[in-house]
């Protein structure tokens, strides 16, 4: 046995080497797992560029800022040079749920699901209750896409998280990973309407719906490309939901009021829900103060 013994010196060398190797692997892993870098000074040049669409393996790649955007595939082409963002003014939301209804109608949302759901939030005993619409947050550090075993859900360059329901295996791990409970599962074959069935399947609409796959809010990407507001924002008669392009720094609501996104967030104290989780959502909220409607009974 003695001739096989590793000398102390060799052992120490090996130990140091493996330490270095582990460190390298670790930092590589950390880069791999982090979908978006921490936001720096803003501006187009430093923005994270995602190159993932339904035709790739869904791996989130942070492309160098200078590189051109990935060649878009027909159905899931991201809008070029766009970074969609939503702002919801909680001071305006009166909980009428018109957003939910409009969304449900436009997307033929299966029964039991509310892709944008209006919660009655109350942060503590003293503060009053307020209405809290929750769409998919389209996180930049995407917990759901991170865990998807087959890359069926992926982050697109324009910031939208899509689901390829022709690839989804229905394991529901993304539902487990989502802290916002924004994802739903089709437990049975959803009821169909002729209007829904007439459409060819597209990842930008996710219908015709089918059983055994995951569904969620998609930010109405096809409408955004045409320069239209998503169904929820277009239906909000309180003008509480703003939608727009962060690169252009402009968001618009139902009243047609277009404002600077950064100014709106900075001046009105905008925040993101559960910021401490580090998911970096693309949905911002304005605090529910100086409300223009009666607060929920809560």
């Amino acid at each position: 046995m003695t001739e096989n013994k590793i000398s102390r010196r060799t052992f120490l060398k090996l130990f140091a080497l493996s330490g270095v190797a582990l460190g390298g692997v670790g930092s590589w892993l950390a880069q791999l797992l982090r979908a978006a870098p921490p936001a720096s000074d803003g501006g187009a040049a430093t923005f994270p560029a995602f190159t993932a669409d339904a035709s790739t393996t869904g791996r989130l790649v942070r492309a160098p800022a200078a590189s051109p955007p990935a060649a878009p595939s027909s159905a899931a082409a991201a809008a070029p040079r766009r970074r969609w963002v939503m702002v919801i003014d909680l001071a305006k939301c009166d909980g009428c749920k018109e957003c939910t209804n409009a969304c449900n109608a436009m997307h033929f949302v299966p029964p039991g699901q509310e892709w944008i759901k209006v919660f009655e939030n109350r942060d503590n005993e003293v503060a009053g209750a307020y209405w809290f619409p929750r769409p998919c947050m389209q996180c930049d550090n995407t917990p759901c896409a991170k865990v998807c075993p087959v890359g069926a859900t992926s982050k697109r360059e324009d910031g939208i998280v899509l689901i390829d329901q022709e690839r989804c295996i229905g394991c529901r791990y993304c539902i487990a990973a989502c802290p916002y409970q924004s994802r739903f599962f089709n437990w049975s074959e959803p009821p169909h309407t002729p209007a829904e069935l007439a459409q060819p399947y597209s990842v930008e609409w996710n219908y015709p719906h089918r059983k055994g796959v995951v569904e969620k809010c998609l930010f109405c990407p096809a409408l955004a490309r045409e320069g239209k507001l998503p169904a929820c924002a277009a239906a909000c008669r309180m003008d509480a939901i703003y939608f727009g392009d962060q690169l252009e720094d402009a968001v618009t609501n139902h009243a047609g009021e277009t404002v600077s996104f950064t100014q709106l967030i900075r001046e009105k104290g905008g925040f993101r829900y559960m910021e401490d989780l580090g998911t970096e959502p693309r949905v911002w909220y304005l605090p529910p103060r100086d409300r223009v409607y009666p607060a929920p009974k809560g």
Partner: peptide, 23 residues
């Protein structure tokens, strides 16, 4: 048995992502 689309099990090999704990 827990999966919604068990017939797509091969997707784990075709499109498997090593970043996912399921892999």
């Amino acid at each position: 048995i827990d999966m919604g689309h068990p017939e797509r099990i091969l997707n784990l090999l075709l499109y498997g992502r090593l970043q996912s704990p399921i892999l």
